[in-house]
């Protein structure tokens, strides 16, 4: 009876340790590949994880692929888990590369461009005119701290309203910003051109209810890189080569990109 209680306590402790140190066990077995791309038209992270894992099964090393929907989660886990590979927005890496010892390997390419633009859209009123209340709410994917400044660099304020009157609502995905604007949850949204195009195909009703106010300056496409000290350069090079060789695979459609280009920091 005494031994049984001891065994039971041991099990509880083991379970607690798993809760407190997430990914600890998985990290021991292989390398981690963290993904965060809120502007991607691909919203189905489950399918993304599944496809990527299938793809990475063909790689020489065991890699655990983990997509993130929220910047805060992604950022926290990158810092705590120190994954081997990271696929993240360019602005994130630009801001945190030194801190996390990030080294870029490849930049994603879409429509033969390694940059994309975001559109500022607003919901049309009943008279097809844009509602412009004094205090606007704007939905957009997170740009991390200093979103307004970054937003300011992306938009031409003359075409719209003063940024100080904006209330920014951070949405997990770019598509959520479209939904938020189209469904009247916010006044304006900053969304990628690709998502607008995609939604025009799958739900023109939503897009028809929106009007483009302005267009951002080009934004660099997300970047794939590795964390120094977690993998060797050879391993990173091997992954890079593997990803380049996989440009024709179906996973590229899942990633909603067309290919890779070399990226120098």
């Amino acid at each position: 009876m005494h031994n049984l209680k001891r065994l039971n306590l041991g099990c509880w402790l083991l379970w607690l340790s798993l809760l407190i140190v997430p990914g600890h066990v998985a990290g021991d077995d292989g390398l981690r590949f963290y993904y965060f791309n809120p502007d991607s038209p691909q919203n189905n992270l489950g399918r993304l994880k599944s496809d990527m894992e299938s793809l990475l099964d063909g790689f020489d090393m065991t890699i655990e692929f983990q997509p993130f929907a929220h910047l805060t989660d992604f950022d926290a886990r990158v810092r705590s888990d120190r994954p081997a590979f990271v696929f993240a927005p360019h602005w994130y890496l630009k801001r945190n590369a030194d801190e996390i010892r990030f080294t870029p390997l490849l930049q994603s390419v879409r429509q033969q461009q390694n940059s994309y633009r975001k559109l500022l859209v607003a919901r049309l009123g009943e008279d097809d005119d844009i509602n412009r209340p004094e205090r606007l709410t704007l939905a957009m994917t997170s740009l991390g701290p200093g979103s307004k400044l970054l937003l300011a660099s992306m938009l031409n304020p003359e075409n719209f309203v003063a940024l100080d009157k904006l209330s920014i609502v951070e949405v997990p995905k770019d598509a959520d910003a479209i939904f938020a604007a189209a469904l009247g949850q916010v006044d304006v949204a900053l969304v990628s051109q690709a998502n607008m195009k995609l939604f025009r195909k799958i739900n023109p009703r939503l897009i028809d209810s929106l009007k483009v106010i302005s267009e951002s300056t080009p934004i660099d496409m997300p970047v794939l890189g590795y964390i120094d000290g977690v993998v060797t350069e050879e391993q990173a090079a091997a992954l890079k080569q593997f990803m380049i060789s996989s440009q024709t695979s179906s996973v590229m459609r899942t990633l909603q990109i067309e290919g890779w280009s070399s990226h120098e920091r």
Binding site: K173, A175, D176, F179
Partner: peptide, 13 residues
């Protein structure tokens, strides 16, 4: 959390 895409995906799944 304005996570409409998640909700739509959830429903789809």
């Amino acid at each position: 959390g304005y996570d409409f895409s998640f909700l739509i995906n959830l429903m789809k799944q």
